[in-house]
């Protein structure tokens, strides 16, 4: 059952990515801004421009350009970045792990915080605190990730400078890494001091990304929990003498998580989109930060590669959420 869904959705993912590739390619050809104009030196003549055009294949008709690009991708060649003069695939491979770690941590934080808020609000639903929690959550819902990022910069980076303002790791620390997954690598190899420094660098950007997700999860999960707590099986569990905490965590939560995931799925992809601006604010060396430079420089091959990677991340997140919704519901799991 699950395998069938994975297979079907993987095929759909490939088709979708192909569609995304076409649209992006076409949009970039009609969008204003010439990548060659951005890179030529002031004294260059028309001949130099033409030579550069030819070198990056920009003199061919768009359809041919597309074919060359698509063929390259299928062969594992994403082309060469115009602004950085480096292989796009290796640029992506270098930067993607940083973004994966950041968004992974933000996802975990968002789910945990949102879940905790919803559970606490459910436990305290009859007390005066309930209104307070709702108000705080309303605030969280209204504030977007980049505003949190700026607020954190001001408060935790400048006013009370407790956290590093930018980068991924303290450059003064002498280190070598085997992989680009700094956090995972240091946690696995037990270099906790380094892992701690990396986490401190990730704290503000990941929290900024996590809070909007946490707010949406908190609200939807709270509603789902409230509905579940009304059900007869909770009443019966109450007769069994279970504590309120056990009723929420042991009886209601498992039936509330699936519907909540189904309703909050989009928000998870918003988080990935949010990395672009948040990485920029914290000079975090991920693909989001790179995407802004790529757009400023009209670096078509790099933009195209980045869009495909972002598209793939969206689709994978959606797939994982859909699978989780099925896996969490016994009625769906058994077909």
């Amino acid at each position: 059952m699950l395998a069938a869904i994975v297979l079907r959705r993987s095929l759909m993912t490939i088709v979708t990515l192909f569609g995304v590739a076409i649209v992006v390619f076409l949009l970039l050809r009609v969008a204003p801004g010439d990548p060659i104009a951005m890179m030529i030196s002031p004294g260059a003549g028309p001949d130099d421009v033409a030579a550069l055009r030819a070198r990056y294949g920009l003199d061919a008709p768009p359809l041919i350009q597309f074919w060359i690009w698509l063929h390259g991708i299928l062969m594992g060649d994403f082309g060469t970045s115009i602004s950085l003069r480096l292989d796009v695939l290796s640029l992506l491979a270098e930067r993607l792990p940083a973004t994966l770690e950041l968004s992974g941590l933000a996802l975990a934080l968002g789910v945990f915080l949102g879940g905790a808020i919803a559970v606490i609000a459910t436990l305290l639903r009859r007390s005066f605190v309930a209104g307070l929690i709702d108000a705080v959550n309303g605030l969280l819902l209204a504030v977007p990730d980049f505003v949190w990022a700026l607020a954190f910069v001001l408060v935790l980076g400048v006013l009370i400078p407790v956290l590093p303002l930018s980068g991924r790791i303290d450059p003064a620390l002498e280190t070598t890494f085997v992989t680009r997954f700094y956090l995972v690598e240091n946690l696995v190899s037990g270099r906790l001091a380094l892992a701690g420094d990396i986490l401190r660098h990730m704290a503000m950007p990941s929290l900024a990304l996590a809070l909007p997700l946490a707010a949406v999860i908190a609200r939807i999960l709270k509603e789902a929990l409230a509905e579940a707590m009304q059900q007869d099986y909770v009443l019966l569990a109450r007769v069994k003498g279970f504590s309120e905490l056990r009723l929420v965590l042991g009886e209601a939560l498992r039936n509330a998580v699936g519907p909540t995931l189904a309703l909050t799925g989009v928000q998870f992809t918003f988080l990935i989109g949010g990395t672009v601006i948040v990485e920029r604010i914290f000079s975090y060396p991920g693909i989001g930060n790179m995407a802004i430079d790529a757009v400023i420089n009209r670096d078509l091959p790099l933009i195209q590669g980045l869009v495909l990677v972002f598209g793939l991340m969206f689709l994978v997140v959606n797939l994982v959420i859909d699978l989780a919704v099925v896996a969490l519901n016994p009625k769906l799991r058994h077909g």
């Binding site: 059900q231 099986y233 019966l236 003498g241 039936n255 969490l328």
Partner: peptide, 23 residues
């Protein structure tokens, strides 16, 4: 809770909703 949990029990009206669908 303690007394009822250990000494009393309920057979509910609607068996279709009284069992937790997720357990």
């Amino acid at each position: 809770r303690r007394i009822l949990g250990a000494e009393a029990a309920l057979i509910p009206q609607d068996p279709s909703t009284a069992l937790n669908p997720g357990r």
